[in-house]
């Protein structure tokens, strides 16, 4: 479902979002505030998401647990 392409798709989505925010921001004296806030928020959130995604892309360690009970594992299967 989610693999390396997600990063690129997310990137393109944020570019598109930024473009839309730039042009769709309400006119008037607060236009600059709208534009900067929307675009900067989008990029900050993307950066955070991308870093998290990257960190789990090729994980070096796996979760370990002592005292895992069978019913616990069942319930946690989601």
């Amino acid at each position: 479902m989610a693999n390396g392409w997600s990063l690129l798709i997310g990137f393109l989505f944020i570019v598109a979002f930024s473009a839309v925010s730039w042009f769709a921001s309400p006119k008037g004296e607060n236009q600059t505030v709208w534009r900067s806030t929307l675009i900067l928020s989008a990029w900050s959130c993307y950066l955070m998401w991308a870093i998290t995604f990257l960190a789990q892309w090729h994980p070096l360690i796996s979760p370990e647990k002592i005292g895992l009970r069978p019913e616990h594992a069942e319930r946690m299967k989601f």
Binding site: M1, A2, N3, G4, S6, W49, T52, F53, Q56, W57, P59, S62, P63, E64, K65, I66, G67, L68, R69, P70, A73
Partner: peptide
């Protein structure tokens, strides 16, 4: 599952958790 031993999870192949940790 053995409650007395350390269990190590294994990864679902080709799948990355899509949002967050």
């Amino acid at each position: 599952i053995n409650p007395n031993k350390t269990m190590v999870a294994h990864r679902v192949d080709g799948y990355v958790y899509p949002f967050g940790i």
